[in-house]
Amino acid sequence: MRLKLGHDHPAVETVVLLVSEAVTNSLVHSDSRNGGRITLALADFHDFVQVDVTDAGGETAPEVCGDLLAEGGRGMLLVDALARKWAVQDHDAGRTLWFQVAYTRDL
């Protein structure tokens, strides 16, 4: 992520954090965890970055955990708090979690 966006990109830290959370969710919770594929797509639209994380899907979709004291489940809480928009879409290839991180550039 850092190389694609650039180390000085205004959204790089947030994007790296949220990608880490989303890919970890795929590795732990999706059917991709047993050697399946996880695909990551990144696009910069000049005032937001969109990230798509696609995996094989699973029994449950990513959701925000309401229990702040739970041992896990806070990754989607971070996505919900830091992304300007996010959603989960099921499709023939599996499931995609996408999110957008807004930013402004200093002139």
Rank of each mutant, 00 (worst) to 15 (best):
T14K: 05
G36F: 02
P62Y: 11
G36Q: 04
R95K: 04
D90M: 06
H46M: 06
A83V: 09
A70E: 07
G72K: 13
R95G: 01
V51L: 09
R84M: 13
G66H: 11
T60R: 13
W98H: 15
G6S: 00
H29G: 04
L97C: 08
V28P: 01
A22R: 02
D90Y: 04
H29V: 02
G36W: 00
L27V: 07
V23Q: 01
G58I: 01
L68N: 10
H7W: 05
D55T: 06
T54K: 08
N34M: 13
A41E: 15
L40P: 11
H9D: 00
P10S: 00
G94Y: 05
V23S: 03
F45T: 07
D52Q: 14
D31R: 10
V101I: 02
D90K: 12
V49N: 05
A43Q: 12
Q89I: 08
W98K: 10
H91D: 08
T104Y: 04
E21C: 01
T24F: 08
T14S: 01
S26R: 08
T96W: 02
N34R: 14
Q100Y: 07
H7P: 09
A81F: 14
D106R: 12
H7R: 10
A22M: 05
D55P: 07
R37G: 05
A102W: 09
R84D: 15
L82V: 08
G75P: 08
H29W: 12
Y103C: 05
H29L: 05
F99K: 10
V64C: 07
E59W: 07
G36H: 06
D55Q: 05
G73W: 08
F48N: 13
E71M: 12
C65A: 13
D80S: 10
L82I: 07
S26C: 12
M1I: 12
W86K: 03
L18A: 01
D67V: 12
D44F: 02
G36Y: 04
A83H: 13
Q50H: 15
D8A: 03
E71S: 12
E71N: 11
A41F: 09
R2V: 07
Q100S: 12
L77V: 15
D67A: 11
G57F: 01
V15N: 02
H29P: 03
H91F: 04
Q89L: 14
G73M: 03
G35A: 11
L3H: 12
G72C: 13
V28W: 01
V16W: 08
D8I: 01
